[in-house]
């Protein structure tokens, strides 16, 4: 028997919004420790890694580990039926081929449930090597989304260059070039608004705008985003989900032609 209850169903909806444009379908691996999802997009350029810890849920029970393969467009339809203040309870029997989502309104005057068919997905888990990153940049998530959106108008790629002075985002296209430089802030009172750079060595890498834009769909989940970079290694874009876990995206770099 698997049962997970989240008072704030809106959080799950935000997680879904953050992954459904990258992935058509994905397996949710449920165990005693929580729910995990790891999946690559169809082009094998990016990878989504979601980790929700069991004690972040208001109720969590998982007697036997189970993998629930879901079509994310279908799952989105289910969550479109939930109210923003609803509580969600996710339930599945051991070896079941369906999962049930129950939504309860705050005062419990409305209760709805949706049963969805599960899928058998050929899932391939990738080993992600431990990396000592050259640069770790922590910045407001809304600022990152804004920069990616702005620069995407001009080119297909963004070069992210990090030195100890700051981080520079650059693009070039047919109409010209664009650069955004962010300096490290000294505003330690407001951590949420800070740009903090932890640099061992300067690094400069090129990434596809298309994917960076899809990653920023996670912006509503967290005020801050962390970008971890190292030469010749995929970029890690990490959003902490307060009290529940984290959502990480990995993006393979572009290399010189």
């Amino acid at each position: 028997m698997f049962e997970a209850r989240l008072v704030n169903s809106a959080t799950f909806k935000k997680i879904l919004d953050a992954i459904k444009d990258l992935l058509d379908q994905a397996s949710f691996d449920c165990s005693e420790s929580g729910i995990q999802l790891q999946a690559m997009d169809n082009s094998h350029v990016s990878l989504v890694s979601l980790n929700l810890k069991s004690d972040g849920f208001d109720k969590y029970r998982c007697d036997r580990s189970l993998t629930m393969g879901m079509n994310l467009a279908s799952l989105s339809k289910v969550f479109r039926c939930s109210g923003s203040d609803d509580t969600v309870t996710i339930k599945a029997q051991d070896d079941a081929d369906t999962v049930t989502f129950m939504f309860e309104s705050k005062k419990q005057e409305k209760i709805s449930d949706y049963e969805m068919k599960l899928m058998n997905l050929d899932q391939e888990h990738l080993g992600i090597p431990e990396t000592e990153f050259s640069c770790i940049i922590k910045m407001p998530s809304a600022e990152f989304a804004r920069i990616v959106r702005d620069l995407s108008q001009f080119g297909e790629s963004i070069v992210i260059s990090c030195t100890k002075e700051g981080v520079k985002f650059s693009t070039q296209g047919d109409i010209g070039t664009g650069n955004v430089k962010l300096a490290q802030t000294n505003n330690f009172d407001k951590e949420e608004e800070s740009v903090i750079i932890d640099m061992q060595e300067p690094v400069s890498l090129t990434f596809a705008c298309q994917y960076l834009n899809l990653f920023t769909k996670a912006t509503p989940l967290s005020n801050q985003v962390t970008l971890s970079m190292c030469d010749n290694v995929p970029l890690v874009v990490e959003y902490q989900i307060p009290d529940l876990g984290h959502l990480c995206y990995y993006l393979a770099p572009k290399i010189e032609e």
């Binding site: 690559m40 094998h44 350029v45 990016s46 990878l47 391939e124 888990h125 990738l126 080993g127 992600i128 090597p129 080119g155 297909e156 790629s157 070039q172 090129t206 596809a208 290694v233 995929p234 990995y250 993006l251 393979a252 770099p253 572009k254 290399i255 010189e256 032609e257």
Partner: peptide, 14 residues
């Protein structure tokens, strides 16, 4: 600008 690499060049199946 640049050629897109595959994630499979970096991460191997478990």
């Amino acid at each position: 600008a640049g050629n897109q690499t595959s994630l499979k060049n970096f991460f191997k199946p478990k």
